[in-house]
Amino acid sequence: MKFSDFICEKAICAELTADNKEDVITELVDSLLQAGEINADEKADIIAAIMKREELGSTGIGRGVAVPHTKHPGVGKLVGTVGVSVDGVDFNSLDGEKVQLFFLLISPPDRPGDHLRALENISKQLRDETFCRFLKQSRTREDIHQLLEEADNNQFAS
């Protein structure tokens, strides 16, 4: 699975303004709402579900990366977005580091395979330090989108 299969370009957030876990999740979900990927009346429910998942254990998987996610019947297919925080956000990461890169995923309840393939793609690309560094340095939506496209074209991780 490629980034272009699940990352909504219009919802990509460069220079996130939030500085705590709930706000950053809200900012990213809001961005998916503005992009027309989710319904307004489901926004609060989706944010609550993602926060509930975080309570089971942080999705901050290290290297300054987090993959907050939930299943929700409000989406017909896997949708996701990317956010970059310049200063980083305290996310109770597994390695204790602040998180700069967020990959937020919302998947339909009956499609665990798609969610796994998205995680597989994200983790494979992020193992490449150059991709990780360039993404953290990105300051515009266009830059982030271009990096994701380059990753999709196998210009980073093999």
Binding site: R63, R117, S123
Partner: peptide, 13 residues
Amino acid sequence: KSILSLLTLGAEC
């Protein structure tokens, strides 16, 4: 011992 590595497996049921 690395979650990032384990997730690259994409191991389904």
